[in-house]
């Protein structure tokens, strides 16, 4: 697998995080390894960061994508909170990709807010990786 975007010749920088009271970290740890194996530069926010601290890390580290995972039903408050903080910090172009235990109706709500993916458990890693590449490219086009 190849992590550089062929058109842009640039490595994707991605922050993976669980922005709430949720210790179920199997998914984020697997994804972090998979993103790394796919050639991306991966940062992990550790356990129990607040949405604000996730956004601050994302800005400080100048990432392209923030991948958020929750299994505790807090996605509807926590994911948009990260988005809000990114905007506040002037980094509304950083893309947010979601995942976890997310009911179908909530997926639509998140999509409307610009939080994409919202992958359920068992989603093939390649599908997530391709999606991340797609949104990163979108950000790069925007940034130009």
């Amino acid at each position: 697998m190849e992590g550089t975007n062929n058109n842009m010749k640039r490595r994707i920088r991605i922050l993976v995080a669980k922005p709430a009271l949720d210790g179920h970290d199997r998914g984020v740890l697997v994804l972090a390894k998979a993103f790394r194996d796919a050639g991306m530069e991966v940062l992990y926010a550790g356990l129990l960061p607040t949405p604000e601290s996730v956004a601050r890390i994302a800005v400080d580290e100048d990432v392209d994508v923030v991948a958020l995972s929750l299994h505790n039903s807090a996605h509807l408050s926590a994911f948009p909170a990260v988005k809000k903080w990114l905007k506040k910090l002037g980094a509304g172009d950083i893309q947010i990709v979601g995942g976890g235990i997310i009911p179908p109706a909530d997926r639509k709500k998140l999509e409307k807010l610009g939080i994409t993916g919202n992958f359920g458990p068992g989603t093939p890693l390649n599908q997530v990786i391709e999606h991340v590449r797609k949104v990163a490219k979108k950000k790069w086009v925007k940034d130009q």
């Binding site: 009271l21 505790n72 039903s73």
Partner: peptide, 10 residues
């Protein structure tokens, strides 16, 4: 503050 959005959920 940290409980926001999580009370009574799980």
């Amino acid at each position: 503050d940290r409980a926001h959005g999580e009370v009574g959920k799980c």
